[in-house]
């Protein structure tokens, strides 16, 4: 039952776009459904369990911290669900479920609750969770499985159901049993970095390669564009990240012809998911139009630098976390001039 319209007296702003947090968050969840669905089709039951575990652990920790903080439940704003889905999409398909739960708890606890909940988190919670398990379980998080293997809807990847606190079993034999053709066991970025072997771009676009759960560039691009057209995310962020990545890898290829080209860089690894769904998180990104572009360029630059010159073969996660961390500074630099004030920027 709706209350009767009341006379609302408050300070400006009085006009707004008619969007609120819950509405945006709900739309982001809808936009990730095709990506998650595609991943389930690729990897089967294991990824379904992975998604459920990640979302459930995020929701439960969110509720727990609500209780500890004596606050009303914030499960209804969908933000914890998004964290869970995005977290699952960045993990390897066969990632043990107990480690996934650890990642979910850390994501909400250290990424969000510690700073005061939604809107206060300086870093993207899902990436905080992933960064933690990357540092804690370096072997499990670089154990890749082939996609579209036989029997994926009837059985789990052996590592998925590892008992809590136990080491996941070796899957080399299992991979040889199910893989359609020879499976390298390394991601396209790792193959490129350590063996200078290129992966066909069509495979990358469809995500038919070894990699994290949500890496099919085409599906992510479509879903991201949907959000951009609904004005649910700032299109400048993904566009500037992709522009910086493409330009830098193109320029470097001129110097070093064996280096990977722009299309490979854009479509491989977590770049698409990171650019469209993680870097564009409203809390961790700058608010000024110029700041947003600087932020995007910075992330693209760090990604390319890590991929080309770093010890790791993938740098999107750290690039976005560093971009998040630089956001307050970028915001301060790019404050617009107060109307009527003289000088470039007057500090209060």
């Amino acid at each position: 039952m709706k209350k009767k319209a009341q006379l609302e007296l408050r300070t400006s702003p009085h006009a707004h776009a008619g969007q609120d947090v819950v509405q945006i968050m709900r739309n982001v969840v809808w936009a990730t459904v095709p990506i998650a669905g595609f991943a389930v089709w690729q990897y089967g039951l294991s990824v379904l369990a992975l998604l459920l575990t990640a979302v459930l652990s995020c929701l439960l920790s969110e509720r727990l911290f609500n209780r500890l903080g004596l606050e009303p439940s914030t499960l209804g704003d969908w933000s914890a669900s998004i964290t869970g889905i995005l977290l699952a999409l960045t993990l390897p398909p066969g990632f043990p479920l107990w480690m996934t739960a650890v990642a979910g708890i850390i994501a909400i606890a250290m990424g969000k609750a510690l700073f005061g909940g939604l809107g206060m988190n300086p870093l993207n919670p899902a990436l905080v969770g992933r960064a933690f398990v990357q540092a804690a379980f370096p072997v499990a998080i670089t154990t890749w499985t082939p996609s579209l293997f036989n029997g994926r809807f009837t059985s789990f990847i052996p590592t998925t159901l590892t008992a809590p606190f136990q080491r996941p079993p070796a899957i080399t034999e299992w991979v040889q049993g199910v893989a359609v053709d020879s499976f390298a066991g390394a991601t396209p970025l790792a193959l490129m970095k350590f063996e200078h072997a290129a992966t066909p771009v069509t495979d990358l676009i469809l995500g038919a390669t070894a990699g994290s759960t949500g890496e099919s560039a085409l599906v992510i691009l479509v879903c991201g564009l949907y959000l951009a057209f609904r004005r649910m995310l700032d299109w400048r962020i993904p566009v500037s990240i992709m522009a910086a990545t493409a330009f830098l890898s193109w320029a470097y290829q001129l110097i070093e012809p064996t280096a990977p080209g722009p299309l490979f860089m854009l479509c491989s690894g977590g770049l698409m998911l990171g650019a469209w769904f993680m870097a564009s998180d409203m809390v961790g990104s700058p608010v000024t139009p110029l700041g947003v572009v600087i932020y995007g360029l910075l992330i693209g630059f760090i990604t390319v630098a890590v991929r080309l010159f770093g010890g790791l073969n993938e740098g999107v996660m750290y690039a976005i976390l560093l971009g998040n961390a630089a956001t307050p500074l970028i915001d301060q630099w790019t404050q617009p001039r107060v109307f009527g004030a003289d000088g470039r920027r007057k500090q209060a």
């Binding site: 480690m99 250290m110 933690f132 540092a135 804690a136 379980f137 370096p138 499990a140 590892t162 606190f165 136990q166 080491r167 996941p168």
Partner: peptide, 28 residues
């Protein structure tokens, strides 16, 4: 390390949380 004062607590199959013995673990 799954141990206390060098004594194994959880058996050989324990998966150590590597981050805990690295510097970030100290801060956390």
């Amino acid at each position: 390390a799954g141990a206390l004062f060098g004594f194994d607590l959880f058996g050989a199959n324990f998966e150590p949380w590597v981050v805990m013995v690295l510097p970030p673990g100290g801060f956390i």
